[in-house]
Design a protein around this nucleic acid. Structure first.
Length: 890
DNA sequence: CGCTTAACGTA
DNA sequence: CGTACGTTAAGCGT
């Protein structure tokens, strides 16, 4: 068998190569947005791709050390003892690198008590014995001993990771003048500083090679020790134990028991989704393209995929029958009896905003109902959708809205793959069905060929999707923890219909208000811009931070502000600071211009979103990691309120006929109340139970004065402190926000915690508990994992700590609001009221009130919102009414 | 055209 | 060196 016909096995010392890469590439240039260093990962993968292209291995394994301890350190405690602590920036990269390799379909191997080199030695020996051509890639010189006719060592050169020296037998002889197997004998005599193995004094490479060549081996040298003259001879005789010890330690173990052998590490297709996701977080863009080019897409039909084997495709979908309504009636009846427990998977397809097809599936059957024009076509179907028959979706809310367009009402929402996946992993928001299918079932969701010019409904249709939905939901439910299931069944699934209705309803807009504001703000902005240009003598794009930097820091030579990635900050806080240190009319005009253009932009965006006099936002139910809903297209949860002009924007959100008024209801200080409840802090609980102004009460305690003597300044300070608490605020942050000295901020915090100590204990405990459990939990059992609490990377870890401390508070508030919404919606509908929910802004609900219903609706809101949770403090709800959002504020 | 960044609005 | 979001324009690379 010629070499070219042999399978090629490549084994890599992951740790040593990554370490080389770490020092070859600048640490600071490779940091992702989360502060994670990535230079070693980048360098390693880059080198790996180069190796794959050049050597074309058919089999590949990457070995890692588990720790710096092994049988060698037990035998000789000083082994590798001179090595300084691995830099923290490096350590955190190894697990990520291992993840990346797994995603790329590359086997990683570790073994307790052994070093990566021993794994290399074992695999290379087995590989050679089994007829592989073997490449060993290692930055450890001990690996030279592995070289033989079948094994080549690729050793990184001093010039960096991109260049590797090929050591075959000839090259080893050329470089050292010995056979590869003699290398450890040489090294034993000379010693290896990096392993803290001291050799025989005065014996260097030349002497060692001379001796070993003369006597054949270290044993031979020691046998003839008496023949060697001079000081070195003496040293050898006196220090031979060192050489013997060194030789024992540098012998690589070739019979480590490993979970895999060479034949098991054939290159597999990569996991495209996982690679994309991981590389996105690592911010490796060009590497991503290279990976796909070199390793292949993972598509078994892709000729660039290195491995030809096809993964088990899993069960195949049942053939999908296209049924008309009457046939469907029989089908549903028959299946309902057989699949009462499992329920049905449902998928809908929209083309150009019209419902084009509905798919329904059981575990072994699937049907498709073509889209039609009206509800009369869907008699059986409508009845079934309105029944309690358990239905599972991927994005139930979207399906409910789609079905609503043809007059179908949906009840019996029993599952939602998207939401379940999100509850299991709230960090990943709203995964597509295909991702969940791959993740939970290990299968590829069939999709239409994008190159097809005329899309065919067969064989990839919503019937097939419905079948996958049912399977994925089943898999996810089985995997999710029981407390998350409660949140799913009791809160999220019932909420889908409520949100769907709110989206469909939309909120009325008084367009003339918006148009007027837009003109007014436009003129104001233009005027301010002209004035600003006058101050600096030329025009400039005031919306361009880059051009502003040129004006501020070069032309006007102002002191430099906070650094950003691309230069120096021109944000409002920085400009305000500048104005104090270095007053200039341009700064004030710029700030005002920013304000005017920002508001105008908001106004214009809103105006563009109006359809038939109303704006229909979309609530993203899986859009946050804490449990809140978010709002998009447009975002109605960030409409200005703090400034006078901002409030005028709110006045454009107006009641529309036949409704008579808008009503807003919000929770006051819900997060502080949750903190009081969760911490059990007696002082805080007392504050809420006495019903006194919270910040006044807290201020009185902190500053040791009567509540009536709390000054506005004192109130501002404790207010900032209280709010900051739930975010993990530091003395530094507090001082910056309040523009006070850090020492004063520190004193404020000390005083605060002296009075409200249970709060501090609670916050500390949340993080501690989360570190132990690996997740946080809200009052209602919504969980959020926090793997980074154990990260060696400080930035990552401390970010996770603050997020973990906030998660139960923000999340519990979100749960409470959701429960309240369910109650309010149910009462309104059960009570036959015409009033309806329109908007939710985290702790506030906005409703449209039908004539004569105001008192009843207000009563429902107070009852349902106030009673959404039983806390040790009351949930205070304040209600306002008016013709528009601004007028209804309180 | 798509992507990233800076900036800024809300709770 | 305060959590959670979404949107926009500018700027850059393709």
């Amino acid at each position: 068998m010629s070499d070219s016909a042999k399978p090629t096995l490549m084994v890599i010392d992951g740790h040593s190569l990554a370490f080389r890469a770490f020092y070859a590439l600048p640490v600071d240039s490779f940091v992702n947005r989360e502060g994670q260093h990535t230079n070693a990962i980048h360098g390693f993968i880059s080198m790996l791709l180069m190796l794959l292209q050049r050597e074309k291995p058919t089999h590949l394994a990457v070995a890692f050390d588990i720790s710096r301890f092994s049988f060698r350190t037990r035998e000789y405690a000083e082994y590798k003892g001179t090595r300084s602590e691995t830099p923290a920036e490096f350590k955190g990269q190894i697990p990520l690198l291992q993840q990346a390799l797994e995603a790329m379909g590359i086997t990683t191997v570790t073994k307790e008590d052994f070093e990566a080199d021993d794994i290399l030695a074992t695999l290379s020996k087995q590989g050679a014995d089994q007829g592989f051509q073997v490449f060993v890639v290692s930055g450890d010189r001990d690996a030279i001993q592995l070289v033989n006719d079948d094994v080549t060592l690729l050793y990184p050169s001093v010039r960096g990771v991109s260049e590797l020296t090929r050591y075959d037998r000839d090259k080893v002889y050329e470089r050292y003048g010995i056979e590869p197997h003699q290398y450890p004998d040489i090294a034993a005599l000379v010693g290896e500083t990096s392993d803290n193995l001291i050799g025989v004094d005065k014996v260097g490479e030349k002497t060692a090679v001379k001796w070993v060549t003369q006597y054949g081996s270290l044993d031979g040298v020691l046998e003839h020790a008496d023949d060697i003259k001079g000081v070195v001879g003496n040293n050898l005789r006196e220090q031979k134990d060192r050489a013997i010890r060194n030789r024992r330690l540098n012998r690589l173990v070739t019979d480590v028991e490993l979970p895999v052998g060479p034949a098991d590490v054939a290159l597999r297709p990569l996991d495209e989704a996982a690679v994309r996701e991981l590389f996105a977080t690592l911010q490796f863009r060009t590497l991503l393209d290279r990976v796909f080019k070199v390793v292949g897409s993972g598509d078994p039909t892709d000729p660039s995929t290195t491995d030809g084997s096809v993964e088990d495709a899993g069960p195949t979908p049942p053939p999908v029958k296209t049924l008309i309504d009457e046939e469907l009636g029989y089908w549903l009846e028959r299946k309902a009896a057989a699949d009462a427990e499992n329920g049905f998977g449902v998928a809908v397809e929209m083309i150009d905003g019209r419902l084009s097809a509905i798919g329904i599936a059981t575990h072994d059957d699937a049907v498709l109902v073509p889209g039609g024009s009206g509800a009369q076509d869907y008699e059986q179907l409508s009845a079934w959708f309105a029944s309690d028959a358990p239905k599972h979706f991927h994005d139930a809310k979207a399906a409910i809205k789609a079905l609503g367009t043809v007059g179908i009402t949906v009840a019996g929402v029993a599952g939602d793959a998207r939401i379940t996946g999100w509850l299991a992993n709230p960090g990943k928001q709203g995964q597509p069905l295909a991702d969940l299918v791959y993740q939970e079932l290990g299968e590829e969701l069939p999709t239409a060929d994008p190159n097809q010019l005329v899309p065919e409904t067969d064989p990839v249709n919503v019937g097939v999707h419905a079948w996958y939905v049912l399977r994925v939901v089943t898999a996810l439910r089985a995997r999710v923890d029981p407390t998350s299931l409660t949140v799913l069944d009791d809160i999220e699934l019932p909420l889908t219909s409520v949100l769907a209705r709110m989206e469909t309803t939309g909120v009325g807009i008084d367009r003339p208000v918006l148009t007027g504001l837009s003109h007014e703000l436009g003129e104001r902005a233009a005027d301010l811009a002209q004035q600003a240009f006058g101050e600096i003598g030329h025009e400039v794009n005031l919306g361009s931070p880059k051009q502003l930097q040129e004006v501020l820091f070069t032309e006007l030579a102002m002191p430099k502000t906070r650094k950003t990635k691309t230069g120096f900050s021109t944000d409002a806080a920085s400009l305000t600071d500048l104005q104090e240190q270095h007053p200039h009319p341009f700064l004030g005009l710029l700030l005002q211009h920013r304000d005017a253009t920002k508001l105008r932009q908001i106004v214009d965006t809103l105006d563009a979103a109006v359809v038939d006099g109303r704006i229909h936002t979309r609530y993203e139910q899986t859009g946050t990691s804490t449990g809140r809903v978010s709002s998009t297209d447009p975002n109605l949860q960030n409409i200005p309120v703090k400034t006078a002009v901002g409030r005028r924007i709110r006045s454009a959100f107006a009641v529309a006929e036949p409704y008579t008024t808008l009503l807003t209801a919000d929770y006051s200080q819900i997060e502080m109340r949750i903190m009081a409840h969760l911490s059990g802090d007696a002082g805080l609980i007392q504050a809420f139970n006495e019903g006194e102004d919270l910040h006044r009460f807290v201020g009185a305690r902190v500053f040791g004065v009567e509540p009536s003597d709390v000054s506005p300044e004192m109130r501002t300070k404790v207010k900032a402190m209280s709010y900051g608490l739930a975010y993990g605020l530091s003395a530094f942050g507090l001082s910056k926000q309040l523009r006070i000295e850090q020492s004063e901020a520190r004193t404020l915090m000390t005083e605060y915690f002296a009075r409200f100590g249970a709060v501090r204990d609670y916050l500390r405990n949340v993080v501690e508990q989360a570190r132990e459990d690996g997740y946080t939990e809200t009052i209602f059992g919504r969980r959020r994992p926090f793997p980074d609490l154990k990260s060696p990377n400080r930035v990552l870890r401390e970010n996770a700590e603050r997020a973990a401390l906030n998660a139960p508070i923000q999340g519990s508030a979100a749960d409470i609001m959701k429960i309240a919404m369910l109650g309010v919606d149910a009462d309104l509908r059960d009570g036959g009221l015409g009033s309806r929910l329109l908007l939710q802004v985290h702790d506030e609900l906005i409703l449209e009130i039908a004539p004569g219903e105001q008192d009843r609706v207000e009563d429902i809101l107070r009852t349902r919102m106030g009673g959404a949770a039983e806390l040790t403090v009351p949930l205070d709800v304040s209600v306002g009414v008016g013709a528009n959002w601004e007028a209804a504020a309180h």
